[in-house]
Simulated scan of single mutants.
Amino acid sequence: MTPLRGIALKLASVILFVIMASLVKAVPEVPTGEVVFFRSAFALPVIIVWLLWRGDLGTGLKANNLVAHALRGVVGVSAMGCNFAALVLLPLPEVTALSYAAPPLTVIFAALLLGERVRLFRISAVVCGLLGVGLVMWPLLTLGEVDARALTGVGFILASAVFRALVQIHIRRMVRTEQTSAIVFYFSLTSTVLALLTLPFGWVMPSMTEFGILVMVGIIGGVAQICLTSAYRGAEAALLAPFDYASILFAILIGYVFFAEVPTAMMLLGSAVVVASGVSLILRERYLGLVRHRARPGMTPQG
């Protein structure tokens, strides 16, 4: 697979995830736990077919550390549920922009939990990223009286960002012993089971239209997950990472066309600051990776 195909798959995953989010937003009457169930359950067949096609079903079913997979499921479902809850309460572009808080938080958690060194450049980029998130939040919280609905939505999406950052840290540990295919399969399986636990909290019988939308949420989510995983087989993570931020463009377009959501100037400014911060971090890490790679030939066997 060429890097160009990897980029194409990455962009496809970004577009599909935004479409999935817009579909979740289109069924506001369906409880969040129920939406999470459909997202996970109907992604499972797609993932199983993909694993069969790749000849990786045996690998996907092999788990060396079930506790790690269960923990990844709990934290991942929490991130997904908070994100879906926020989509009902906030405009799609704002949810997308605020979700960009996850990469700066990942840097912070990597320093606290993994002992990674964080130098001045990364600290500055993280601060700028969080400042951008604050700019996006500002209009939601200061237009006259504080809107309780908006405040709740902001709380949900920031909680989702925290959980997503923790998931990234946890996956960094998991890949030492677990195959990527197993991580993908068991997340969908555990999230389906965990979502079922919300059944006593008021699931509803969806209409035929809602049922169709919920099934599409699962299928599109599964395909997007496969596109994302496959993208990294053809291109380096540092090359693909900036394309995550293309999601804001698609979110603004879909939000405007289908939900009549017009982004504010402050939201656009904040998004630009967050994107600039994230891209600078990515480019810096890529540069340092190239420097380390060039330095290896001259290193001693102990070095």
Rank of each mutant, 00 (worst) to 15 (best):
Y186M: 10
G115R: 01
R292Y: 00
L71S: 15
F38Q: 09
C227G: 10
N83C: 05
W53V: 10
V35L: 10
A165K: 11
I219W: 06
R164T: 11
S78I: 07
G129P: 03
L120H: 03
V74I: 15
L166R: 13
T106E: 03
M1Y: 10
A224K: 06
V24A: 15
T142D: 03
A150C: 02
L214H: 07
L196Y: 02
P45L: 09
M205L: 15
T264I: 01
A276Q: 03
A150M: 08
S230Q: 11
I19T: 12
V146T: 13
E145A: 14
A246Q: 09
A63Y: 00
I15P: 04
E116W: 04
A102P: 00
V88C: 03
L61K: 05
T264G: 10
M299F: 05
E236S: 14
V273W: 11
F185W: 11
L281R: 06
G132V: 10
H170Q: 11
S247H: 08
A26K: 10
R164S: 15
S230R: 14
S271E: 01
D147V: 02
L89E: 06
V275M: 10
L57C: 07
L89K: 12
L249P: 00
L44H: 04
W138K: 11
I282T: 15
L66D: 01
R296N: 05
V274F: 01
L158P: 06
S230K: 14
A195E: 03
Q168Y: 06
M205R: 07
V24K: 06
T192L: 08
F121G: 03
T152C: 03
I108L: 15
V273C: 13
P91N: 12
T2E: 04
A86P: 00
L98A: 05
L283C: 03
A231F: 08
L281P: 02
S78T: 15
Y256E: 04
G132H: 11
G55P: 10
A272S: 13
R286C: 01
P93C: 04
L71D: 02
P139K: 04
G155N: 06
M137S: 12
L112C: 05
P206S: 08
L87W: 02
G33R: 12
A86V: 05
L268P: 00
M80H: 09
C82Y: 07
G289I: 00
A148V: 14
R54T: 13
G212D: 08
F201Y: 14
V127F: 08
A12F: 01
V27R: 11
I219P: 07
K62Q: 13
I282N: 07
S78C: 12
L112N: 05
E236T: 01
S124K: 04
R119M: 11
A150K: 08
W203N: 12
L239S: 08
Q302P: 01
S207G: 15
I157H: 10
G221M: 13
L140K: 10
L283W: 03
M208T: 13
H293E: 14
S188V: 06
L214G: 06
R164N: 14
F259W: 04
I282H: 00
T229I: 11
V291F: 05
P93S: 02
R294Y: 04
L98Y: 02
L143W: 00
E210C: 02
P45A: 09
L269F: 13
